[in-house]
Design a protein around this nucleic acid. Sequence first.
DNA 1: ACGAGCATGTAAGACGTTACATGATTAG
DNA 2: CTAATCATGTAACGTCTTACATGCTCGT
Lengths: 193, 193
Amino acid sequence: MARRSQTELAVLGALSMQPMTAYAVRSAIRDVLGHFWSESFGQIYPTLTALERHGMVQGQEAGRSGSSVFSLTHAGQQRLRQLLAEPVVTTPPRNGLLLRLFFGRTTGLAACRDLLITAQADAQQRLHEYEALAEHVATEDADSPDAPYTLITISAGRYTAQATLQWAADALRSLDQLAPTSGGPVPDGSAER
Amino acid sequence: MARRSQTELAVLGALSMQPMTAYAVRSAIRDVLGHFWSESFGQIYPTLTALERHGMVQGQEAGRSGSSVFSLTHAGQQRLRQLLAEPVVTTPPRNGLLLRLFFGRTTGLAACRDLLITAQADAQQRLHEYEALAEHVATEDADSPDAPYTLITISAGRYTAQATLQWAADALRSLDQLAPTSGGPVPDGSAER
DNA sequence: ACGAGCATGTAAGACGTTACATGATTAG
DNA sequence: CTAATCATGTAACGTCTTACATGCTCGT
């Protein structure tokens, strides 16, 4: 699946939950899918325009300000099904944190500890967010047919955050064993020249 | 940090471990950093050329075929430190699996089960790879000063894979509870027109 | 009246992948 | 000798982000 159709998929999916304006699509992708998906602002409008041209969605003027509410057409429904059935596209990994830890010898123990502690705090934060979110969905939207699927994606976030917490604690322990007291960066050899 | 300097960072980092040819840099990024980092082929050569122009690396002809082995200059060392010290850049998330599960109501229970089972198998596979890798590093390169840091990144992969396994099992259970017997996609309304 | 948020777009430029093109070396 | 791998690049194309530009509406 080409990369562009990933944006198409997200937009069609958002509209499949309920008709909304382009602006609302953007908000929904940011707020609802935000934990595992992102689309940049400048992608959504052109994509919606193209989808309308191909008859996948149709806009309906609403209110006096000329904002148009888009909804899926039947062709759009089918297109969504088709895209969902295509194999999952995995983006090439780019984990800046692990890259820095990998080259940790150059920056030294202390810098690595800082990175890990920050990662731990971030994961803890996310864990709280996921738990609040899961609770909210389980109580408010419990009867929605989408709820079980939403909960599964939230659960993925929770497991990942928990794994990060455990890993970071583990890694910090291993660094402590390495050199309990000090840990500056390796000398840079400036004096040698 | 601009996105380009991420490539710079990976290339400088690779060369900080040992001098090598552009081709070897590419192989190292693919094979060694592969679990958490990727650079496309077409980026590495231009980046190396630019780095040489700026005096960050210097190439030395080796062998009769004119292949040049690059090594970090002092300026390159400093540049690497500087880049490593900059805040971690997080790429916007794009998890195609979770996107599909989120819209699971449209594709139906069976499709979601398939996705989860595949994800489980993939995670299991990765877990084995990480364990083999960790064992290899712990025995072969145990005395390398880079070994502790390498092991931390491998550990991250292990924790993540394990979390995926648990999450998928959990999710499969919750889907089973939802409808133990059937689970086709929602009707698409074709007949209604 | 004014600021926050709703709403719609465009354009430039950075970023990245893929395919193409070419040749040397080495293991089987 | 021949296939795989090492080795070096370029060019085209597609993708994505960011910044800019503009105006409305609603609450305070």
